[in-house]
Amino acid sequence: MEISNIELELSPEPELALLNDTSQINTLENEAIYIFREVAAQFEKPVLLFSGGKDSITLVRLAQKAFWPAKIPFPLMHIDTGHNFPETIAFRDKLVAELGLELIVRNVQDSIDQGKVKEESGRYSSRNSLQTTTLLDAIEEFKFDACIGGARRDEEKARAKERIFSVRDDFGQWDERNQRPELFDMLNGQIELGQNVRVFPISNWTELDVWSYIKEEEMEIPSIYFAHKRKIFLRDGLIWSHSDYVYQEKDEEVLEEMVRFRTVGDMSCTAAVYSEATDIDAVVQEIRDSTISERGARIDDKRSEAAMEKRKQQGYF
């Protein structure tokens, strides 16, 4: 049996249609909007963690829908590793300007300069795990009590255990053995001073759901999600970007290939896939046919079987 085509319903005519809940996108969209409204109602200082990736772009669209005709009642925050794809940063700035949203940027470079974290070195060096310190500092600086993120349970097995409202202690840490049960639709956002809640409105979406939604909503996304010619090199069966930010051995030959990214982290931890998918239809088709999981191209997850669980315990997204 093949993974199926999701049938999307056409947007109904104003004043005519019955809002239908049987299509999957509708179910998931309604659930996410409900969660956004709970965040706005239950917390004093929420923030949307925005990476410029497709999941956080989807979050922004859902938040727009949740609060229309009012503006999104909280800012976006980007933890910038300084090693991002320039396309992502350009996209981020454009989106924020168009929607008139407030954007907070905090830099991993500052945490390095302050001596709080140490830059990794060598073959697999990455700033990905250093983000945690910068994030926790920013949460403390702004006294955020709810941080909305685009993590999905289908992405990775530690994330499959994640709650929709996930409480972090005052060290920002996740106690996976002692999580609050979540029953029916009821979200318990009661916390003590100093604690915060990570909120995951698209917990129940799969990668294909996100792409189908991007297509349905005709959302703009950064160009690196589409196939393009890029200078790359091969290591451990993965396609790495050739860049100043990525450590490369002398014998690792630079090639130019048609590739795209399925997931966008910073350049040092995100591998590309070979692809000819230059538009959204082709991307959706490619995801449908794919036999490799999305995080199969995440170098940060390859470190060990429990890489994500460890990072989450320390306060990672």
Binding site: P12, A17, L18, L19, D21, T27, N30, E31
Partner: peptide, 11 residues
């Protein structure tokens, strides 16, 4: 968009 009806579980 405006709708005539809202079905179960719609936000």
């Amino acid at each position: 968009k405006k709708y005539k009806k809202a079905s179960r579980r719609s936000s």
